[in-house]
Simulated assay, not measured.
Amino acid sequence: MTIIWINGTFGAGKTTTAGKLVGLTEGTRLFDPEHVGYMLRANLSDQEFTDFQQLPPWRTLVPVVMDEIGRLTGDHLIAVQTVLVESYWRELEEGLRTRGYDIVHVLLDADPETLHTRIDADPDGHDIRPWRHNHVPAYQSARPWLLPAADLVIDTTKHPAQSAAEQIRDHVANQL
């Protein structure tokens, strides 16, 4: 089975692209790694962390939960999650590979101006817009390792979600 991990920062189009990709690709389902983080946050409220990705159990449990869902359903999984710390990505990747998954790491990239415009235009999350805006420089800092670590990079400044989803579908079809 295959894991398609769609990475990129807020405003890059991850969620929209993933939704379109599921519609284009039979035998796939969305997986949201944040739900593992929500569970950990609820159960580790006595621990200090600012992002659940900082918790080693998150990086351990995401591949475990993905494996369980993949085995139960037989579906390929499409994960939508920003991962900007290289060592975290390597842990997730290793956890999935040791379970026998092929991983297609997709990076949706856009210029900072486009990202900020999209963040402001998002009708949801008015209260977390500043937090999302603050992640754009972190994303820019991570690009030097993200670009070569990705199997496919799509500039969503130039390619809307439908086009990005089609490119991912075609890339995955050529890989398998």
Results as ranks from 00 to 15, higher is better:
41 R>Y: 07
41 R>V: 13
42 A>W: 11
42 A>C: 10
42 A>Q: 14
42 A>Y: 11
43 N>Y: 09
43 N>F: 11
44 L>C: 13
44 L>M: 15
44 L>A: 14
44 L>T: 13
45 S>Q: 09
46 D>Y: 11
49 F>H: 08
50 T>K: 08
51 D>R: 09
53 Q>Y: 00
53 Q>D: 06
53 Q>G: 02
54 Q>V: 05
54 Q>L: 08
54 Q>E: 15
55 L>I: 02
57 P>E: 00
58 W>Y: 03
62 V>D: 06
63 P>N: 05
63 P>S: 02
63 P>Y: 01
64 V>R: 08
64 V>H: 12
66 M>Y: 10
67 D>I: 11
67 D>P: 03
68 E>R: 15
69 I>K: 13
70 G>W: 03
70 G>D: 10
71 R>M: 12
71 R>W: 07
73 T>C: 09
74 G>V: 10
74 G>R: 05
75 D>A: 14
76 H>R: 14
78 I>G: 12
80 V>R: 15
81 Q>C: 14
82 T>M: 13
82 T>S: 13
82 T>K: 06
84 L>T: 09
87 S>P: 09
89 W>C: 03
90 R>L: 13
91 E>L: 08
92 L>E: 13
94 E>P: 06
94 E>D: 12
95 G>I: 10
95 G>W: 07
97 R>D: 07
98 T>I: 09
98 T>G: 03
99 R>F: 01
102 D>Y: 04
102 D>I: 02
103 I>E: 04
103 I>Y: 03
103 I>T: 06
104 V>F: 10
105 H>E: 05
106 V>C: 05
107 L>N: 05
109 D>Q: 08
110 A>F: 04
111 D>Y: 06
112 P>C: 04
112 P>E: 14
